[in-house]
């Protein structure tokens, strides 16, 4: 990754910017039922161990590029993004098949509640982080 960042530094014009955006695995994602107004939290969805490791490696690569004087940090932030599903079964299938998250949510509502609303729309709400870095002329 550091090698790729060196290439980014090379192809950027002086004062150019690098935008790094990716899912924020430092905070949990949530399984939520879409209500007429707003959302109801049904469960917490953690990031898989493998993806946590990948994300930390990316963080280290950026930190090293900054430490080596290739870039300076200008601004960073986080926003939330919702991935929609037609039912609870679809959401569960998504969690089972995707590598980013652990396969099962940690439910915060009881089974009766999950059954009652199983056929209503659900979302996975997850955090996305971004950072804007400026190319430094060495």
């Amino acid at each position: 990754m550091v090698h790729a960042l060196r290439e980014v530094h090379r192809v950027l014009a002086p004062g150019g910017i690098l935008i790094d955006a990716r899912p924020d695995s430092r905070v949990a994602a949530y399984a939520e039922r879409r209500k007429r107004r707003g959302f109801q939290r049904f469960g917490v969805v953690n990031t898989s161990r493998r993806e946590l490791s990948n994300d930390r490696a990316s963080d280290r690569a950026i930190a090293r590029a900054v430490h080596e004087g290739m870039f300076k940090r200008r601004r960073r932030g986080r926003f939330w993004h919702r991935v929609p599903f037609g039912s609870l079964a679809e959401l569960r299938k998504y969690l089972w098949e995707h590598l980013r998250f652990v396969r099962r949510a940690r439910w915060v509502v009881d089974e009766a509640t999950r059954s009652r609303y199983a056929n209503e729309p659900f979302v996975v709400r997850r955090a996305v982080r971004y950072e804007i870095l400026e190319r430094v002329t060495r």
């Binding site: 990754m1 090698h3 790729a4 290439e7 980014v8 090379r10 192809v11 950027l12 014009a13 002086p14 150019g16 910017i17 690098l18 935008i19 790094d20 955006a21 990716r22 899912p23 990316s58 690569a61 950026i62």
Partner: peptide, 21 residues
């Protein structure tokens, strides 16, 4: 591949790594 970019130096003003790193 990002490790060997086929562009000359200083070719861009903005590089975006959107869900890439």
């Amino acid at each position: 591949a990002a490790q060997r970019l086929p562009h000359p130096g200083g070719a861009f003003d903005v590089v975006i790594l959107s869900w890439t790193l």
